[in-house]
């Protein structure tokens, strides 16, 4: 019986170990075919911004949705909303944040054309696309070659196509909130909760379909002062939530910058704990787009 050549086996094992150390640690395979899903978080944000900017320009919802799916966010709508809020909080371009928020909104509603555009060409493109949605829906999002070639076939390139496009009736759309529609003050309640900060003014802004709306500017004025703040900076409470601490015995007036009913005479109410102790309660306002 031949004995096992342990020295040779040992050399083989050491060699494999050295090979693995080199391949995994010293010189790993250079990546040149990464997908957007494994980009660093800040680059993913820029990728989302680019998707939103392209969507704002073209209104091509199926294409925007396919691109978002490449990022493999667990919930693309939340990712977009959170990003829009963070962009506002960081003082980045309001237009870019609006584009991201608009895409989130369109995603929520699941419809295309949520971004108004003054470009007649993209308007015509939208019309063509709406009539071809069944054909344009991407079956897979892994291969961008497909995404890149699916919808442009519908792009009108000459006047004849444009004129044909305008003859096609539009499909039914869900009405979208627009900045021009004034918000209604649908709730104005005193809140006596000793667990909250004294004089806490809570504001919730809802769209017409009762979705919370981030990034809404709120103007608050009082005798000798004014301030502005935004919804969505406390996403853990709600995307359409904002708050402000009122000083007792001062009367405040609140209005949405986008246009709304004016809530006047807002004063921190005097409340009592079950022990009979007095404290200043808060108020809760709800604005909703009709």
């Amino acid at each position: 019986m031949r004995r096992i050549p342990w020295d040779i086996v040992l050399a083989l094992v050491v060699g494999i170990g050295l090979g693995l150390v080199y391949a995994w640690l010293i010189s790993p395979m250079k990546v040149s075919n990464a997908t957007p899903a494994i980009l660093r978080a800040d680059f993913k944000e820029q990728y989302r911004s680019a998707i939103a900017a392209a969507y704002a320009a073209t209104g091509n919802f199926p294409r925007a949705r396919s691109r978002l799916e490449l990022l493999k966010d667990p919930n693309p709508e939340d990712a977009l909303n959170t990003q829009a809020q963070q962009m506002l909080a960081r003082g980045q371009s309001g237009q870019a944040a609006d584009q991201v928020a608009a895409l989130a909104h369109a995603l929520t509603l699941g419809i295309e054309g949520a971004v108004p555009t003054s470009n007649p060409i993209t308007e015509a493109v939208n019309q063509v696309e709406e009539t071809n949605t069944a054909n344009l829906e991407p079956a897979s999002t892994e291969d961008l070659t497909f995404v890149g070639t699916e919808t442009p076939s519908a792009l009108p390139t000459d006047a004849t196509q444009l004129s044909e496009a305008t003859l096609i009736p539009r499909s039914t759309r869900t009405p979208l909130p627009t900045q021009g529609t004034p918000f209604k003050l649908t709730g104005k309640d005193e809140v006596c909760d000793s667990n909250l900060s004294d004089g806490l003014l809570q504001i919730i802004v809802l769209s017409s379909n009762r979705r919370q709306m981030p990034g809404m500017e709120i103007d608050i004025t009082w005798d000798g002062g004014e301030n502005q703040f935004f919804t969505g900076l406390k996403p853990e409470i709600g995307n359409g939530y904002a708050d402000f601490v009122m000083t007792p015995d001062i009367s405040y007036t609140v209005q949405l910058a986008a246009g709304s009913d004016i809530a006047t005479g807002l004063i921190a109410p005097t409340c009592q704990t079950p022990n009979g102790e007095n404290f200043h309660g808060g108020m809760k306002l709800t604005f909703q787009q009709p």
């Binding site: 050399a11 170990g17 050295l18 790993p28």
Partner: peptide
Amino acid sequence: IVLALLAGIGLGLAYG
């Protein structure tokens, strides 16, 4: 032994 070492390195690189 040297051949085994080289073969091992090759296998390790291919796997890694």
